[in-house]
Amino acid sequence: MGNQYLLEVNELKTVFSSESGPVTAVDGVTFNVKHGEVLGLVGESGCGKSVTAESIMRLLNEKHTKYDGEINFNGRNLLSLTNEEMLGIRGNKISMIFQDAMTSLNPVYTIGDQIAETIMIHQKMKKKEAYNKAIDMLKLTGIPSPEKRIHEYPHEISGGMRQRVMIAMALSCKPSLLIADEPTTALDVTIQAQILDVINELKEELNMGVIMITHDLGVVAEVCTRVVVMYLGQVIEEADVDTLFSSPLHPYTKGLLKSIPKIDGDRNKKLHTINGVVPSLNNIPNGCRFAPRCTYATEECLNEAPLLQVIKDNQKVRCWNYRQLLKEEVQNNATTII
C-alpha cells in the first residue's frame, strides 16, 4: 500500500530559529505524490509552499532549521539521510525548477556546459556523451537547433528559452520527481502555455511525479490532477482538480476561486477579495488559522483549531463549517442546472 506512492510527506514540520524565537513555517503538512501525477500546491505568498518544496530537497540552511515528521521518497526517509546521500538524490532522483529563470543560470558558462555538468556528476558520463545528451534534452524541451544553442551564454537567449534550459537541466538525469516552484510566473502567457505543455509531455514520457507550486489557479486547472491548498503553513484542503473547482469545501479555497478575474466579467464590477492579509507566523491565531478573515467564522472557529477531515473520496478539508459550504454548493449547482 505504502509503495504505490512515490513521495509521502507525513506531518512535516519545518521550524526556523530566528532572533525572536522559533518560527514554524510548515506545520504538519501531509500529502502524497504518485508516479505520473501532477500535484498542485497552491496558496498565497508566505503560506509555506516554497518552504515545503525546499524541505523536500533539504535546501534550507540546516543550522537554522529543524525538521520534524517524515518525507518518504521511494521508501527512504529523506530527513534522515546524510548530506552526502542527499547530493546523490538532488538533481538525480528529485529535481527542481525555480521561478526566476532569468537568474537561475550561471552567467559565466555556456548553457551546454551547465547541462552537461549535472549529467557528468550523476551519470558518470564522458564530456562528449554528456554534451550529446544535453543536446537531446534541449531538443526534448522544444528548443530549435540545440546544437547551436549549447554554445551560447545565458544572456544570449530569451527568458522562455532559459526556462526551457532549466527544465532540460532538471530533467537531464530523468528524475522520478520534479518540483516546479512557480515555473511560469515570470513568463508571458504564450510561453507559459508552451512550458506547461513541455512539463506535461515529459511527465508522460518519463512517468515522473510532479509537484507544481503556483498561485495561479489557471495553471492548476491546466496541468494538475490533484491539488493541495495551503494556508499559513497548513494544508487546508486537498482534492482532485475537478472536485476542487466544482465544489470547494474550504471558505479560503472558495474565496480564491471567486477572486479569479473572468475574461467576460463586468468591467465596472469590483473583483472579489479575501479581506485582511495572511497573519505573520509569529502571531498565529488560536483557533482556525483562517478564522479572522473568514466570512463563515463562528465562535468555535476562533477558539478551537479544526483538523484535516476526510469528507468523501479524495477530498479532505480543515474546516468546522464545511457542511454549510457543501449545502450551498449543492444549491448553487441545482440553480445553474435549472
Binding site: 547530493l87 538533481g91 529535481s95 525555480f98 526566476d100 537561475s104 543560470l105 549535472t118 532538471a170
Partner: peptide, 11 residues
C-alpha cells in the same frame, strides 16, 4: 538563484 539551483541539482 543559480547557486541555489546548483544545490538543487546535487552539486
Amino acid at each position: 538563484t543559480y547557486i541555489e539551483a546548483l544545490k538543487s541539482q546535487g552539486a
